[in-house]
Design a protein around this nucleic acid. Structure first.
Lengths: 237, 237
DNA sequence: CACCCCAACTTGTCTAGACAAGTACAGGCG
DNA sequence: CGCCTGTACTTGTCTAGACAAGTTGGGGTG
């Protein structure tokens, strides 16, 4: 009564598993149809059926004469993608970051808007307060909190290329793998109006972001206020 | 130098012409694959390639053991979840959607905020105007534009489970694989204030979103206004 | 009449090839 | 050095079958 397993689905599932596991980097090529046919002991037709499904699902693209190109490493990533500040302000603008105050080592804020994990609660945290400029206009006010897992010397060393995420990744092996956020529109407070040079109650974009890292139970948290009159917050659009 | 005409495209065009001319009544069956192979002096494989294209374009459905059915009405099923509205409003809330006006088939808006691809420019578009409610409070005003790739019967058929993305994927093989967006905070206009029942100039979150699909050069576009006083816009946080 | 079973027909899956057409790269030529 | 060209490799199209599996309808049986 068992239904015969369909080969092209087996191949499809196998490749999909590898793709979501990140076995093939984005932009790289899958093995050719002939190679796959050999690996799975079947014909090119059947392999092509599996590859067609992967195209339909958006995992790969195909290019005549070239091969099957991996389109995304992890289809499971959320829709709201995360990027650094320089990729986030729409268009080609000169971006710059200043610190409102030096990085501090402190307790987690009381009444923190994010729930902490048990791992994080027993640690103190690094706090960053930064202003981001596009073409010398202040566009973003960012408060960032990082659990202090041996990051003490970040207090004295500069960030690599000015990038927090690059520093965490290259110097501390903490990779950012996903991001969750809540979005609000709010009216500017007096302090924010002063920073952005705008009127009181000007609509600001307010984001609460939790970045998931490669270490379970460890996150980077950010609260961001954005002045979007001149510059949108974007990801690739 | 003439490129050899591709047989499956000839068959595809021939059938499409007959379908749009109403040669086959809705709900009736096309000639079987073997009959078509005979008519076009080719093999079943080639005929199947043409029929597969017609399914992708939404002209026909296929039923194992029965035949190729000319599209008319459709049933509801399936549970593929994509990041839709219900997952996007933070927390556990009863969500509901209403249409401000019926879905229309129209030209692309003049001065459209999104640049169109060549593929899209030659098509007309489906326009949706929807209000989203959380716990019976209006929280989102959404204008969506979909290039009309054989989606005409979306004008008369309901969305599967009320979900546009689910409908596009299951009924039209259009998978949403990525999203790009620009975010702004803006003050509510009179019209928006009326929809949300808020004061004029209340800060609203305004998003311009481009959804990439599994078909190159085809996108779904949305402009969204969100009232975030009571409900944040979130993804998983 | 109601029911079941079987035959004929349909689409789905798969094989084992062939040739066309696009791509990448090394090697030779100017 | 720059350019072209040939070759190996890739995907795209197509043939001529085979068997599996789902649907339909007719005929026989109770």
């Amino acid at each position: 009564m068992l239904t015969r397993p369909r080969q092209y689905l087996l191949i499809y599932e196998s490749l999909k598993t590898q793709l979501t596991a990140g076995v093939y980097p984005k932009g790289s090529l899958l093995p050719s149809e002939n190679e796959l046919a050999g690996q799975f002991q079947t014909t090119r037709t059947t392999v092509r059926q599996a590859l067609t499904e992967l195209v339909r699902d958006g995992y790969i693209e195909r290019q005549h004469g070239r091969g099957s190109i991996v389109r995304s490493e992890r289809q499971t990533l959320g829709l709201l993608s995360f990027q650094g500040f320089s990729e986030v302000v729409a268009g080609d603008h000169a971006v710059r970051t200043t610190f409102l105050k030096p990085i501090t080592l402190q307790d987690w804020p009381s009444a923190f808007v994010f729930p902490l994990t048990d791992t994080e609660r027993v640690l103190d945290c690094l706090a960053l307060e930064r202003i981001r400029y596009a073409d010398e206009h202040p566009v973003m006010l960012e408060y960032t909190f990082v659990p202090n897992v041996g990051l003490d010397d970040m207090l004295t060393n500069d960030l690599l290329d000015g990038s927090l995420f690059r520093t965490l990744h290259q110097r501390y092996q903490l990779a950012i793998i996903d991001m969750q956020q809540r979005l609000y529109a709010v009216g500017a407070t007096a302090r924010q109006a002063a920073v952005f040079g705008c009127a009181l109650h000007t609509p600001l974009l307010y984001m609460e972001r939790r970045y998931l890292t490669s270490r379970p139970g460890l996150h980077v948290y950010s609260q961001l206020y954005c002045h979007t009159d001149k510059y949108a917050i974007s990801n690739g659009l």
